[in-house]
Amino acid sequence: MTQAFAVQLNSLLAALILLTAFALLAQRKILGLVHIFAWQGFFLALSTAVIGYASGEHHLYISSLLTLVMKVILLPYILYTLVRKLKIHRDIDAVVNIPTTMLLGIMLVVFSYHLTAPIRELSNLMTRSTLAVALATVMLGMLMMVTRRHAVTQILGFLAMENGLFFAATSATYGMPMVVELGVALDLLIAAFIFGIFFFHINTTFESLDVEQMAKLKETD
């Protein structure tokens, strides 16, 4: 595998990650979301491995493996069982309709591109151009949190943001130090468990996982 090919492959994976980020915005079924999230993690792991191979930074293989285990297997599994257990299969209702969300998403991608353009000029890493995609993934994850009502989509948006950050780290600096990555992975796992408990409580309190119910908690005036 030549360097140039690796770069192209990485670009393709970046594009696919971006695509999955949009797919998360477009998907209506919760289980579908979990699947897409798993795919995103898979592309991320693959991309990390490719970068690791191409740059010779072999610790990235561990990161890649970690990503694979965490984001492709473990977290989707947790979410999957959660969705099953709480019996939430119905469609997700969005605050903003999906086409509009997509347009906003495109705008955010353009914005990210615009932001990272100076870095692109400065950096000499082969992965520099994927930084825009990484930032865009973060923004799209946040957009997902903004536009969706359901608590599970909120956590998925959050996890997608984390994916973006991870991707940003690999594309901007060939990955974070191992300790940080391990720490983040652990945090994510714990976060997933906490969110599980959190969902359970929301669900039992409001008999729904619609986070807008939580507006009731606000003191009235």
């Binding site: 605050v95 536009t147 909120q154 986070v211 939580m214």
Partner: peptide
């Protein structure tokens, strides 16, 4: 207003 999404939106806008 207690709506979680809007709080995230504030963050996004701030960002």
């Amino acid at each position: 207003n207690g709506i979680l999404q809007q709080y995230v939106l504030y963050i996004l806008i701030t960002l």
